[in-house]
Amino acid sequence: MWDLVAAVAGPPVRLFVLIIVLSAAALAADFVVPQFREWTRLFLLVSAGAAAMGPAIDAVRMMDGLVGKMTGLFLGIYPVLAAGMAAAGGALSLINWNPAVFLFVQGAVVIGGKWMVPLLIVSFILDYLSRLVPEIPFTRISEMIRVTLLGAISVIIACYSLFITATGAMAWSSGSAIAEPIKALLRQHVPLVGSFITDTMGVVGKYSSGMAPIAGSYLIVALLVTSLTPVAYVLLTAFLYKWIAALCEPFAHEDLAGLFDDIGKTLFVLCGIMLVVAFAIFYTAILSIVLIKVIAGAG
């Protein structure tokens, strides 16, 4: 866990040090040569802005790579999985799976790769350009992109919830009395995507508690940790951007603090997309395990 935190925190901490150095240089330049104030601001925004994009674009590219791998995995494994399920007969009644879920998993991955990642990068760029020339703002377009993406994610998650809970076999049994306050806390305090996180947690929880007798609870926990690690990575990066924005607000140029704030906001949306992909990974792994069990005659 601490390895993950150290790996995530490294680039933003270096970025923060760079911002401090650049801001100090800009403040000194403003004091010594006030007539070049415009140029100082331009150089500060270009250098610090380009550096700020680094960790954010890294997170988006990680997501892009993950989605690409998932697409390959789905295309390879799903026909085999579906055929095996059909051939095994009893599997259909055993886990109450629905073939339409394949469509949603595939759809989520394709939409995530083809539309969401490019739109997020465009959103980063438009935020940056609006800070570069404040008189020509693109803030509403990038806000609209974020809101549209959040809407699309919420529809996909709602569809998952419908399909998983409609089968009725799974119940959220693992200590809901403890889980509810944690959910309420997350919903209120994680900006933008808090309710998505809790909803997906509920869906995954329901599904995994239904699957635990078949696949084994240790395996379920291992799968959950593996599939949710990228989500944790993006969430931590988003919070680090928010913290950098808060810390450098008193002394850095106000456009820089605003830029970090906007990057943080966009990364929270990316975190929502990652949740959908994480759920797709989890679902595929579980289905593969169930299929192997059925074929081996242990299910």
């Binding site: 415009e38 140029w39 601001r41 331009l42 760029i125 350009l129 570069l132 020339v133 008189e135 020509i136």
Partner: peptide, 12 residues
């Protein structure tokens, strides 16, 4: 990006 960059330099 090029256009806004040129406008930013022109503005400065």
């Amino acid at each position: 990006i090029w256009l806004i960059g040129i406008l930013a330099v022109t503005g400065a």
